[in-house]
Write a protein that binds this DNA or RNA. Structure first.
Lengths: 305, 305
DNA sequence: TTGAAAGCGCTAACAG
DNA sequence: CTGTTAGCGCTTTCAA
């Protein structure tokens, strides 16, 4: 041993991997890296992984089903030990994922998940969070609340829409389908244009609940440009607590979605499975729910007591 | 071959790596993932890497010299084929990097570099870009321009400071050291507090050139709060063209620093070296300069013709 | 307790 | 041109 360290011996990672059938590398598949929420996820995953001696390969799906399949295959072909995956918005069929799990590579889903796959997951309760967000708008006096939602298929967009609807029902506000605005890309521009349509269709709207902060920011900037008072005439509620929500004028009230923590939890679940597999223990699927909370800022009015 | 594909044969990546002494994995070391500029870098690197069949392991230094050393070692121990590195702000000594290069793992520096290491680099001309930014403020009528700079040691902060100073000289504006504000973390909060100090020390300042958009945004938000007219009383110039600079009120004039492209170029340089090494060709160091440009927005006045 | 050897799965070299 | 084999460097097993 002394000789080894005096010669500055370092074991060869390839040979170790070949022999032990493990790489100490995991894959992290993300829809889009440049989104603030997802870069927080990456941060959490990388930090907790490195605490356990794992490295992380990152790939993006850019919301494409084909890319999701391709990136998963790349990771499996490299014999990584496990995968953290957030589904692309285009993914509605899950055989490619189930197959990988069946072949022995554990997958943990986070954020954008599906009930159709039996595996560990890290989620937030989107329905509850959207309910709370909408309820908050109602409690600040809003009565005609538009919802700028995302694409039809993903579970998150469905759940947040459902939560919105449920809050209206609970407070006896009639649901009006023409107040629902569908956006495809969940981009700043989508929000920007949605704002115009909302005003055109419903000049008397007094609140907007957007699917995510980026969209909410688009709405906010456009309403500002059009001289609409925020929150006096129209209140805006975002979702995710992106960094930018702190610096809009007025600052954006939003739902905090703790990406860093979700990243850490997701790695933890994967690590546990890896551990169980190595020790020949039965693998326990776990579903961890991370809690959200409303961050009151200045795009909404005071709650009426 | 038919039999192989009918049995769905996939070569074992561990054995391939062991045999060929290459992993087709590269390492990317980044100061802080959650910064918009760096997530663009990641995006560019991952995309161009995957075009050539390479995967990317990402690690952060969080501006710590110790972490930089540690992360480099982790990558080398995993036998990755090469490393893309942006120096931490605390790194002033480069032996750990030179040693890795000497032992045969190619390193390409990007963004935060040093002249002391002889290797391929992707840079912008910080001095020129800062000169242009300051010149732009002068041409819009500013005469008393504060500079919120970063830490003393990194080359980028030095170069941008030098460019600022040079522009003042060129336009016969006396340099005043009390207009230089040092920030340690280059954070939103740093800018926020700097704004207060600037006003306190120099109520007649008419322009602020900040080291980066995050700092500029902090300045902008605080000046807004204090009722200062932007750009009428004080103009603000950022640096990097982060996404958030588009959505501040007023929107922030800034210098576009093309992260995505820099990421692509950096991978390209590394790939070329890898190629040259494999073919036994002499390795050519290259220094690629990516051009920047000013993005005029509403935190500055019109250029006086 | 220490030491030797088999084998992980591939590729490149070499023999037939 | 096809088929066999050595060896990459490690770990684990088995023998001494």
């Amino acid at each position: 041993m002394e000789l080894a360290s005096s010669l500055n011996y370092k074991p060869n990672a390839f040979a170790q991997s070949l022999r032990n059938q493990e790489s100490k590398i995991i894959g992290l598949i993300i829809p889009k890296i440049v989104h603030h929420f997802f870069s927080n996820i990456i941060d959490g995953v990388i930090n907790s992984a490195s605490e356990q001696g794992y490295l992380v390969i990152i790939l993006q799906t850019e919301e494409s089903y084909e890319k999701e399949k391709k990136q998963l295959q790349l990771l499996v072909d490299k014999n990584i030990d496990g995968i953290l995956l957030s589904l692309s918005d285009m993914t509605v069929q899950y055989d490619h994922i189930k197959e990988i799990i069946n072949q022995g590579t554990p997958i943990v889903l986070y954020d954008k998940i599906t009930k159709s796959i039996d595996c560990s997951k890290v989620i937030i309760d989107d329905k509850k969070a959207a309910f709370n967000a909408t309820e908050y708008l109602i409690k600040t006096g809003c009565r005609k609340i538009a919802h700028v939602r995302g694409p039809l298929k993903p579970q998150t967009t469905i759940d947040r829409f459902t939560g919105y609807k449920l809050a209206l029902e609970t407070y006896n506000i009639p649901f009006d389908n023409s107040l629902i605005y569908l956006t495809e890309n969940l981009s700043f521009e989508d929000g920007y244009h949605a704002a115009e349509k909302i005003l055109e269709d419903h000049p008397d709207v007094d609140g907007v609940f957007a699917f995510t902060d980026l969209v909410a920011t688009g709405v906010l900037v456009r309403l500002n440009e059009l001289g609409i008072g925020i929150p006096d005439q129209i209140s805006i509620m975002g979702f995710s607590n992106w960094f930018l929500s702190k610096i809009t004028s007025p600052s954006l009230t939003t739902v905090d979605q703790p990406g860093y923590n979700m990243g850490r939890k997701a790695f933890k679940l994967l690590y546990n499975e890896l551990h169980q597999i190595k020790n020949g223990e039965p693998v326990r699927q776990e579903i961890v729910e991370v809690s959200t909370k409303i961050i009151p800022r200045n795009s909404t009015k005071q709650v009426i007591q």
